[in-house]
Design a protein around this nucleic acid. Structure first.
Lengths: 344, 344
DNA sequence: CTCGGGATGGGTATCGTTATCCATCGCGGA
DNA sequence: TCCGCGATGGATAACGATACCCATCCCGAG
């Protein structure tokens, strides 16, 4: 391959001739393969360093591995994904794998499917897909050919690994917390238009909200507005909720990002948090801990989840075929965005 | 290539035999090359659709294009980058290019350099690098071989295109705004440890702050704390500033993310924004507009910058060799985080 | 002294696609 | 009738690495 400035990229043959050995020998050193003496290894490594050789990932992809992991995120705007990636990257870096991220389009099954194809076309060694909305069959078809870890989805599969938190426990914690504070008119912000699958985490959070409300005799106060787990979605949903009479005294948003939007709507309506309306989120994205936000939320340790996803993926690439499911138990983090309702 | 479930991936030869033509003909259709009749095109396209053929990017990379653009972001946590990517992706999708994102490690030159290498190894057709801190020589070496657009850096180059805002104007707007409100003890939060290069945007923002302060006879009140453009950095810097006696009445943070951290520190210290301390940021990330945050900031239109970066990159891939520099003029967006200082 | 086998290094087909030739066909002009 | 040329389709050598298989060397056992 000739580069634009006329210099050839350094290839394995350059290294081989420089070290006076065969390309096979160099390849073996690169792959840590069996049948290389210490002397050979040293000689080849010296030539590699001297020439500044770097393996050509595309060429590798034709026969072997690419040492590349593809990550599909709905959208990089969600700060919780940054927490996940911190743990994921850390785990991968140790194994000299590189993560590449593609955006799957928040809750858009077609876009998500395209993103997945793009990764397969690029011959990644493994895939991490976060909160996917595509059908399970599609996921499994993918996973049969490429090691796959699915993060944040509840259906079980024999062909991919799952990393998730117990959304039922988490949602229960949030709703119970608000009820314990004395709230009765508690509303919920969810996502819409993704089918009724109980595998999707927003469905579980919404159903759990309804169940817990009913268990406490608050069935008549159930109010779910389904928009999306984004600031915009949270804002729209909260505006709609605040316009109702009587308006809710507390809002449980299905994600921190949506809670952010809800906070904005509450302030914009001239109401105080938590004085007039309590707001709780879900994810405990690091940014929610900041003092001026201080959002009550449900913690699922993103960094741990990401780190685990990385480990599971490496194991699968290493040959494991059994299916693993890793679940973290969420906890309530009560901060200053929730308080008892005003007495009336 | 045999996939794990025993099925071969559909290749160009499968399409060729199915359509009863040569692989060359199929390749020509795929590339829109010269020398294909309408009949041929239709026949081949039908076979492609029937078999669900998708080009193998890695194999393509061995001889031609990958239709992949690499994006190096310091870290996906910064919400302003999401704004940039929205515009960028939109522009690329129309040309059937796929963007892949790698994290460059906030302000870590070694990590950034590795991320860049990773993209080159993967044979991307072009590179967008956002707010890089590596030496210009390294950037140019890269750009000579791969079409490159640099976003958010002020050095001029004949080999890559630049997209940026006028940071001098922006910083001036912010400081002048605070001065016009009546502030005198105005502090600034910057980044540290990246060398004194005047090409780096934080350097320009910091120097402009100092210049404007001096021009208004406020040289004695200049106070710069250099941490990093992150929430954590903004928080640490603000804590240090608030501990000083007398403490500043206004803080101009070099980025919205740092301003976020500063807001947290102010609240934690039991002080009010803007009553006790005014805070201004830079970037106008969409999230800053939310009512409960309502951060005064400097707008540089991220979506436009991203869209332009995409266009320039496609042009370069298309063969343009002249160098382009696209600069947006920032504007002040005054919100509720700034106000006149309390009378004392 | 030969033989067997482990350790080491190398030859080479192969992965899927592109790009550079080369071959063929049909048709109009000399 | 023959020649030349444009239009079209195909054969094939790369691209850079891997992995299978084979060749060689050395050493101890029989």
């Amino acid at each position: 391959m000739v580069t634009r400035d006329g210099r050839r990229r350094v290839t394995i043959s350059d290294v081989a001739s420089h070290a006076q050995v065969s390309t096979t020998a160099v390849s073996k050193v690169l792959r840590n393969a069996y049948g290389v003496s210490e002397a050979m290894r040293a000689k080849v490594q010296a030539a590699i360093d001297e020439l500044g050789y770097r393996p050509h990932a595309a060429a590798r992809a034709m026969r072997g591995r690419t040492f590349t992991i593809g990550v599909v995120l709905p959208h990089i705007r969600n700060p919780f994904f940054a927490d996940i990636l911190d743990g994921f990257d850390e785990e991968l870096a140790a194994a000299r794998y590189q993560a590449i991220i593609v955006q799957g389009g928040s809750s858009d099954a077609a876009a998500e499917s395209r993103a997945l194809d793009a990764l397969v076309d690029r011959q990644v060694d493994g895939i991490l897909i976060v909160a996917p909305v595509i059908p399970r069959a599609r996921l499994e078809e993918m996973a049969r050919n490429t090691p796959t870890v699915v993060l944040g989805r509840h259906d079980r599969s024999a062909v991919y690994d799952s990393v998730l938190d117990d959304d039922e426990v988490g949602a229960e914690l949030a709703v119970e917390h608000l009820i314990a504070l004395g709230h009765r008119r508690i509303a919920h912000i969810s996502q819409k238009g993704l089918g009724p699958s109980v595998a999707l985490l927003h469905t579980i959070r919404a159903r759990t909200y309804e169940r817990v409300m009913a268990e406490h005799g608050l069935a008549e106060h159930i109010a779910v507005v389904a928009t999306s787990y984004t600031e915009e979605g949270g804002y729209q949903a909260a505006r709609e909720l605040l316009a109702r009479t009587p308006r809710p005294t507390a809002v449980f948003a299905g994600s921190d990002q949506a809670a952010f939007g809800a906070l904005a709507a509450v302030h914009e309506a001239g109401l105080a948090v938590p004085g007039d309306v309590s707001v709780a989120g879900y994810d405990n994205a690091r940014v929610t801990a900041l003092a001026h936000i201080s959002l009550t939320t449900i913690d699922q340790d993103g960094a741990i989840m990401g780190k685990t996803a990385g480990r599971l993926l490496l194991e699968r690439i290493g040959g494991r075929t059994s299916s693993v499911r890793f679940s973290v138990t969420p906890t309530l983090v009560a901060r200053r965005s929730t308080a008892p309702p005003a007495i009336r």
